[in-house]
């Protein structure tokens, strides 16, 4: 009876450790539309993982007497955020936020007797909840974004024991 209790206890501890390591060592691989050879890998720490923007743009939004009085800040580059909600038989249900923000142009505007340039920003972004299969690529198609060519985000939820690779991977 005592041996049985110890066995249960050991199994219970092992189950907890397995559960912790499942989240702690997981990674999310992402391919953005139009970047087929560029894979971003985001480590998931606890239940969340984030790849911050690569740069930020600060630009004036309000002027007084020709001088800027108020500024806004926006991210540039690639942003990825994942929050793991739960793990099911079908995979891992997660909340995903993706954004590829780009500064397309600087547009001139007349302001009083002068000219100021304001940024024209473009973005390919999505925010969604998905169940991602573990270890397999999953494609999220977004049609109509670029003519008839479907643009798709691709995701792979990766368990740490399946791969020990670093943050960047280039697909050929």
């Amino acid at each position: 009876m005592k041996n049985m209790n110890i066995k249960y206890f050991v199994t219970f501890i092992a189950a907890i450790l397995t559960s912790l390591s499942a989240y702690g060592g997981d990674e999310l691989c992402v391919i953005f539309p139009d970047t087929t050879n560029l894979v971003f890998t985001v480590p998931i720490d606890g239940k969340t993982g984030e790849r911050p923007y690569d740069a930020f743009l600060e630009y004036p939004t309000e002027y007084e007497d020709g001088r800027p009085t108020k500024f806004e800040r926006t991210g540039l580059g690639y942003y990825i955020h994942i929050e793991v909600i739960e793990e099911t038989d079908a995979g891992v249900l997660c909340k995903l936020k993706m954004d590829h923000h780009n500064l397309s142009d600087m547009i001139p505007y007349p302001l009083e007797s002068s000219v100021v340039f304001q940024p024209a920003l473009s973005s390919v972004a999505t925010e969604t909840e998905l169940t991602l299969p573990i270890g397999k690529w999953f494609s999220l198609d977004c049609t109509g974004l670029k003519g008839s060519q479907p643009l798709s985000f691709q995701f792979k939820y990766q368990r740490n024991e399946e791969s020990q690779q670093g943050g960047g991977e280039v697909r050929s």
Partner: peptide
């Protein structure tokens, strides 16, 4: 006449798991 906007970007990184 000051610049119209500023780009803030990283010049040094610390890398391990991320």
């Amino acid at each position: 006449r000051e610049y119209d906007a500023f780009v803030k970007y990283a010049t040094e990184y610390e890398a391990n798991d991320s």
